[in-house]
Every structure is written in C-alpha cells, then in structure tokens.
Nucleic acid binder design. Structure first.
Lengths: 208, 208
DNA sequence: TAGCTGACTAAGCGCTTGCTCAGCATGGTG
DNA sequence: CACCATGCTGAGCAAGCGCTTAGTCAGCTA
C-alpha cells in the first residue's frame, strides 16, 4: 500500500512519539478510507474496523471524525510546504530549482496519492477553524512558486506573460497527479517527476 | 450563477423537450448541491428544497439520488467529448487545432465549473453500470488528445518524448481548472483559455 | 358532469449515522 | 496485596438518511 508517506507524515504530528500505536493505525485507516470513498461516505465504523478496533476506540484518540480529517489535512499541507521550501532553498539558479521543485512536488503527489487526495479534495469537509489553518498553508505554497517564477523571469531565464497564471498551472499539474495516478500506472513517481519537470520548464519558456 | 452550462447540457438529455420543467429544476439543484458539498453530503431534501418541492417529488422524475448523478455525469462527459471532437475536427494544422482544443477545454472547465466538479470529482459515487459508460467517454477524450499530439509530433510541429504523459498533462491542466476556478477569479474563462493554450503549445515544443 | 391522469405533498418507515457510557482487562506503583 | 490510570469493548441513543405510501388536486377528455 502507501505506508511510506504515512510514516513520513506521522512524526510531524504534535506529540507523535508518546501517542499510542493505535492512534497511528486509526490515522492510517482514515487516510485510506477518506481517499477511497471520500470523507462523507466513510463511516466511523469503517475506520475503526480497518484499524482493528471497535467504533468507540476512535473517540479515545480523536475528538471526532472531523478531527481526524483536520489532522491529516494539516500534516499533509505542512509536509508539502516543507518539500516546496526545501526545493526552492536548495542551490542553483531558477531553472535548476524549478526543475527540482516540480520533480519532487510531482513525485510526492504520485507516491502519497492517498494522502494527496484527502489533502486536495476533501477541503470542503473541514471544520471552519481547521480550514483557515490549511488555507494559509496553501497560500504559502502558491507564494513560493510565484516568487520563484518571478525571480526566473527577472533573471531572463523564464518567459512568462502572467506569473499568477503560470504558477497556477505549475501547482495544478502536480496536484492533479494525486487524482489520476494509480498502482497500475506504468511510470514510477520519480520518472513522472522528471518528465513533468521537463514539460514545466518548457512551459515557462526556459531554454533547455 | 452557472445557468448557461446547465442550459447547454439539458437539451442533450434523452426526451428533454417533453420532460416537465420540474425535472430540469431538480437536475440544476442537484448539480449545484453535488458541486458544493459533494454527492454523499447532499441530501435528497437539499435537492428537493432547492428545486422548491417536497422530497417525494424527486422520485417522480428520477429513480434515485444516484440516478441524478448518473444523468449529470453522462451528459457532462458527452458534452466535453463533443467539444474536444469539434476542436480536433476543425480546420488547420496540429498547432492550430491543439490551441483551439485547449482554449475551449479550459474555458469550459472554468465556465461550467459546477458541472465540471461533479463530472470529475464524483466518479466514485456512480453506480457501476453508469461508471462503465462514463469511463468509456473519458477514454475517448484521452484518445483524441493523444492522437492529435501524435499527429503533431509526426509532422514535426511538436517535440514530445512521451505522448501519453504529454496528453495526461494537457487534459490534467484543463480538468483541474474546475477545482480552483471561482467567481472571484480575475481572468475570464476565455482569457484563461488563451493563456493556457499558449502554455500548452510551449510545453509540447511547438515553435510559437 | 363523471372519470381519469400526472404532479405533487404530509407523514413516516426501516435503517444507518456519529457519538456516548458503564464496565472490563491489564500493567505499573504504593 | 490494593489501587488506579490507561486502552478498550458491547450496547445503545438521538438524529438524520433514502425512499415509500396514501391521498390531494388541477386540468384534461368525453
């Protein structure tokens, strides 16, 4: 399954090392269920059963079904933002950094597609306060991408007429990967990342 | 609101001209509700109330809540496929036809974003037989785009290493528009279409 | 006028939902 | 040993779900 991305996500949660293993199993089951059926079509019994427990056990570790979603969404967005910042902060010029950003952004949305689906397509089910936190993270991600495009354009490495539209296209391509990528896809996440990196650079008018 | 795309969709339904106006209002209310809250979070009472009727009235015009979704999804996919075929069948070389395809595909997903959301993000809620029909239409759309890219590559107008990946990127960009485009977006659907057309042509290695 | 039809509603059925609570087992601590 | 905190379960509650039923009523036909 997609156990690796969950294992990456878990340590970023507050107090992760002291939380019982059952809480981890519940979160993992919730990610899998929300990704496959959507938040509203998933029942607390689905999640609890998949984690090998009774429905009541869920409420010992989480306040509500929505709290599970909020935790997943917050951690997923934080991980994505960290990934973007790492790529941008790394060495090289705008072209090299953009290539790295797209490669890793794309590969993450393919590898962690279950988390990605919850993060990108279940926003409407978030309680208002959790949504506010997540919306801020999404804005930060967009700003990082826009700033990099702007820098590249100013340096003459990119040719773009509308930075906002170009940034939208770049993030859009990556996000949508989590919608269509499946186990049966012939490309590995890394291959797809490299190819998308190439496509995006051409889209931005970089001479490659 | 988004009344225009619904008005475009309605006449394509079987027996549309003889169906009572109430059936139209119900379908419109269902599109709006499914797009905003998702299929499972939408109740039959929501739909009926929005259409100005009692819940029972829904079942005079449609067999079930899922039948409403199936009708919307089928008509929406058929409309998209028709749009793609029109663009491809029109005059001009691969570059001109691809530009037209992306412009119209993108503009449609912005203008008809409510229909687009239901069509692209509620597939998992479709009954199995309705899904089979819709999956075939999606495959047809992908094939049209792939064929056009292949033709352009053979003619030396496009430079692509992987046709399937490039086709995915092209449709992906358009589909994702229905996720993020809102009333508050500053670009009109047509402006966005033109800009995306430009970006895609560069992505495909066309000399423009 | 009588008979019929199609569109509709008020009421509610059977079932599932998110969530609660009293109580049980376990293992560490005095 | 007693004590208690922790993690969990079985049973079940109130609310809400999709959908059905019995019946109303305007409008058409003859």
């Amino acid at each position: 399954m997609t156990s690796t991305p969950m294992a990456d996500l878990w340590p970023t949660l507050p107090g992760a090392d002291t939380r019982p293993e059952a809480a981890y199993r519940l979160l993992q089951a919730a990610v899998e269920s929300f990704a496959e059926r959507g938040f509203h079509a998933t029942t607390t019994r689905d999640i609890a059963t998949a984690a090998g427990m009774s429905p009541a056990a869920l409420y010992i570790h989480y306040q509500s079904k929505a709290a599970l979603l909020a935790e997943i969404s917050r951690a997923g967005h934080a991980a994505t933002l960290a990934l973007v910042r790492d790529a941008v902060a790394g060495g090289g010029g705008p072209v090299e950094r953009m290539r790295r950003l797209v490669e890793q952004f794309t590969a993450w949305h393919a590898r962690a597609r279950t988390v990605g689906r919850v993060v990108n397509y279940e926003l409407h089910a978030l309680p208002e306060d959790a949504y506010a936190v997540v919306a801020a993270l999404r804005l930060d991600i967009e700003r990082e991408v826009s700033a990099l495009i702007e820098e590249g354009a100013a340096a003459g490495d990119f040719q773009v007429s509308e930075v906002r539209t170009a940034a939208r296209a770049v993030t859009s391509l990556g996000i949508d990967v989590s919608r269509w990528y499946t186990d049966r896809s012939t490309e590995t996440p890394e291959e797809l990342g490299r190819r998308y990196g190439e496509l995006v650079l051409r889209m931005l008018g970089a001479r490659v």
